[in-house]
Each structure stands twice: as structure tokens, then as C-alpha cells.
């Protein structure tokens, strides 16, 4: 009963209303990272040398592969939207499974990259970190902070998409109402976009 009333509340434009709210939420998420971009760029301006040296020591191969993985996963989630719009439930489910699998793969690769750094004694609170050149410790500090926060968002996105997978399975998300899936896909795209920025900042601009 409550649900009918609430839908009534969002009379006639429930889907556009929730999407409007979702966009606002995505902006707030973006601003969260913009603060860190601001911090990163201001220190990069202060210590161009240190940031350069630190950057070339990161593993660019894994990061590049990860970029392709995330972009592909975004493509997969887009397919799931097209599929549900046309009512192909099986395709939707498989597209979501692929998206989630790629998301997990991204995290695993990220884990390997972190482990490699940690084995070299580069991690926050490590003694060796303060012995690095000027600005390098800041670079690695921000590296762990920003990629770590991004990884949390990836995990959040995976959980969200998993819930959507269940909803598609039991029919709560279907051809008739797929607003929740669309919003989850939007969130996944945001995670992707933020990674593009992180990739450029940490690996490309050196």
C-alpha cells in the first residue's frame, strides 16, 4: 500500500525524478574526487621532479590493462540496458555478469599492483617512504588514498550491480521498469570516468 502511495507521490514522472536525483548524487561523488584532484595538482605544481620520478616507477602495464578492463565493463553494462529495453532478459543477465566479472578482475589486478609496491617498501606508514625524494612520498600517499577510495567505489558498484542482477532474475527489474538498473549503470560509468582521470594523473602525466 505504501508503495502505491509513494509512486503516486512521484506521479507520472517517477523515472525522470529518480534519474534527476541520481545525477545530483553523481555530481557529489565527482566533487569528492575533485578535492583530491585539486590536492594532487597543487602538489604536482610544487614538486614536478618528485612526482615525475615517482610516476615512472608505477606499473603502467597493469594500469593500462585495467583501463581497458573498466572501459569494456562500461560497454557491457550499456549492453545490459539496451537488452532490457528490448526485453532480452538472458542477454541482460549475461551482460551484468560480464560487467561484475570485469569489475572483480580490475580489483584483483589493482591488488597485484599494490602488492608489488608494498613489497618494495612503498606504502603508507612505512619507514622507507620518508626517505624518498621531495614530493615522492606525497605522490605515493595520494596514490594509495585515491586509488584506494576508487577501489571502494568499484566495490560499491559491484554490490549495486549484483543486486540489480538479482532483481533482473526475479523480475523486479524488467522491460517495464528498469530505472534502477539505469541508475546503477550511471554509477558504474562514473566509477569508470573517475578511473580515467586517475589513470591520466598517476601514469600518463609525468
Amino acid at each position: 500500500m505504501r508503495d502505491t502511495i509513494l509512486e503516486d507521490t512521484e506521479a507520472g514522472n517517477g523515472d525522470t525524478t529518480s534519474k534527476f536525483g541520481m545525477w545530483l548524487f553523481l555530481f557529489t561523488e565527482l566533487f569528492l574526487f575533485v578535492v583530491l584532484f585539486f590536492v594532487f595538482l597543487s602538489y604536482r605544481a610544487s614538486y614536478p621532479e618528485g612526482f615525475h620520478h615517482a610516476s615512472i616507477r608505477l606499473n603502467g602495464v597493469i594500469a593500462t590493462a585495467n583501463t581497458f578492463i573498466l572501459l569494456t565493463s562500461s560497454f557491457a553494462v550499456a549492453i545490459s540496458i539496451v537488452a532490457i529495453r528490448k526485453g532480452h532478459k538472458r542477454v541482460t543477465i549475461w551482460a551484468l555478469i560480464v560487467t561484475i566479472a570485469l569489475g572483480v578482475l580490475f580489483l584483483v589486478m589493482k591488488g597485484f599492483e599494490w602488492r608489488e609496491k608494498i613489497e618494495h617498501g612503498i606504502y603508507p606508514t612505512a619507514k622507507g617512504l620518508s626517505g624518498l625524494g621531495e614530493g615522492e612520498n606525497l605522490f605515493y600517499g595520494l596514490y594509495y588514498l585515491m586509488t584506494g577510495l576508487h577501489a571502494l567505489h568499484v566495490i560499491g558498484g559491484i554490490v549495486l550491480l549484483f543486486v540489480m542482477l538479482c532483481f533482473v532474475g526475479n523480475g523486479r527489474v524488467s522491460r517495464g521498469s528498469y530505472g534502477a538498473l539505469e541508475n546503477s549503470a550511471l554509477y558504474w560509468h562514473l566509477v569508470d570516468i573517475i578511473w580515467i582521470y586517475l589513470f591520466s594523473f598517476f601514469y600518463l602525466v609525468s
Binding site: V39, Y43, G50, P124, T125, G135, N137, G141, Y144
Partner: peptide
Amino acid sequence: TLGLGIFDPVRGGDPIL
């Protein structure tokens, strides 16, 4: 908790930030 040094001038950070 981690001591990244972002606001610590000794390690290149900036408290004004």
C-alpha cells in the same frame, strides 16, 4: 591513521591547504 604527510611541512605537505 596512515600519516601520508599531506599537511605536514616536514614531509613536503602544506598545512595551509
